[in-house]
Design a protein around this nucleic acid. Sequence first.
DNA 1: CAAAAGATATGATAAATGTCACTTTTTAAA
DNA 2: TTTAAAAAGTGACATTTATCATATCTTTTG
Lengths: 231, 231
Amino acid sequence: MNKSDKNCICTSCEFRDIVFAHLDEETIQELCNNKEERSFRKGEVINHEGEKITDFKYLKSGLVKLYRRTASGDEQVITITRPFEFVSNMSIFSEERYRYSVAAVEDSIVCNIRLDFIKELFLKNGGFAMGLLTKISKINDKIISQTLDIRQKNLIGRVAFVLLYFTREIYNSMVFDLPVSRKEIADYIGMSTANVIRTLSDFKKDGIIKVFGKTIEIVDIAKLEIISKRG
Amino acid sequence: MNKSDKNCICTSCEFRDIVFAHLDEETIQELCNNKEERSFRKGEVINHEGEKITDFKYLKSGLVKLYRRTASGDEQVITITRPFEFVSNMSIFSEERYRYSVAAVEDSIVCNIRLDFIKELFLKNGGFAMGLLTKISKINDKIISQTLDIRQKNLIGRVAFVLLYFTREIYNSMVFDLPVSRKEIADYIGMSTANVIRTLSDFKKDGIIKVFGKTIEIVDIAKLEIISKRG
DNA sequence: CAAAAGATATGATAAATGTCACTTTTTAAA
DNA sequence: TTTAAAAAGTGACATTTATCATATCTTTTG
């Protein structure tokens, strides 16, 4: 086993199936030597709004939130997402600088590859280009439709939506630890923190959920779905 | 002049600079023979939500709205936009079917090219692929940031935003004919129709705008900007 | 461990927005 | 041109949501 083989575990990276499927072994190897993995602790910022984009980054493990700061200083959470979603993917080809910030809401590992290298690959390899475009389009589609879904709901519908999102898309479990504060949920669904807290209390009183601090247990998912749809 | 030369005016199409810049004359010619221009009258639907995507389409002239219908039957307007923005561009590479509908809000001309043809080009020609990805990314970025901008504002801020959007981005004029109904504006900014009408009346009373039916004149754009920012 | 800071929780009240009823105006159709 | 239908406009009132004050609980830090 030579050095690059030892250091390189890209051959088993799950992201490979999604975007890098069309690359030959040699290119995968080169990619591997060009990549850098970085760990982020919960709360750490991965990308800053306004910062220059130099790397292609994707989330290998963990959970991140995408957000921006408004003129009045409030935080707008755009989405909260799992691997292997964007990190810098989103405006990487349309902007020179990040439009949004990304922060880890759980300990996360991010894979960095020089943007130039990805761009070269993109120009050379049509299959890779298609895979990447498809991936980026899907991410964008998801963000847009999620935003529209939230927008059409009222307060309790939005809170129900977020709980369902965590239980289904993020944790795939009826019991989970909320990775974000009530305020972050409020910034995500565009409601006040007090009302998010109140709604969670109401759900608790109605026996729809159980709450132990940050731990949430979904008791009546059917009712939650009705609330989310109606709202 | 042969037949294809006669029919083909793609060489002078403005969209060429944006996406097709990297194609040689032969390919442009082929593209031209593969394309079809279609006219739509104000109000006509160009794409239906749920319909299969077979063509790559872009807006050559006119004005369109992108929208979807919610479970409760309401219309959600996602954006209103000018050439050479998407028509089917948006989810063309990520979805088999349209996620959203597109309708002409002014008489419009749309250029159709078989999707297969575009996909082939994309695979073969890296420069074209990059141009297309950049374009699609920019469109998505614009929609997302516009949606976030609107979301952070209150009623009057949102109405002010729409008026500024029309006057600056769409018509580039202080006087313009509203291409959409009050209800469509309401569906766009996520407020009730009555409140949109009321707010326009208030702006009129305050001397910020003049209203003659569908015709709007911006009188005090500075004040409108303050309202849009504050809101 | 103690103190401070931050997050959660809850009630009272104010502000923003929606709904409904109805009139007037404009547009489209017969 | 007349008539019907749709859109615009307005007021009264109901509902939803935000704000503020304050208390408690939790986490961080010295």
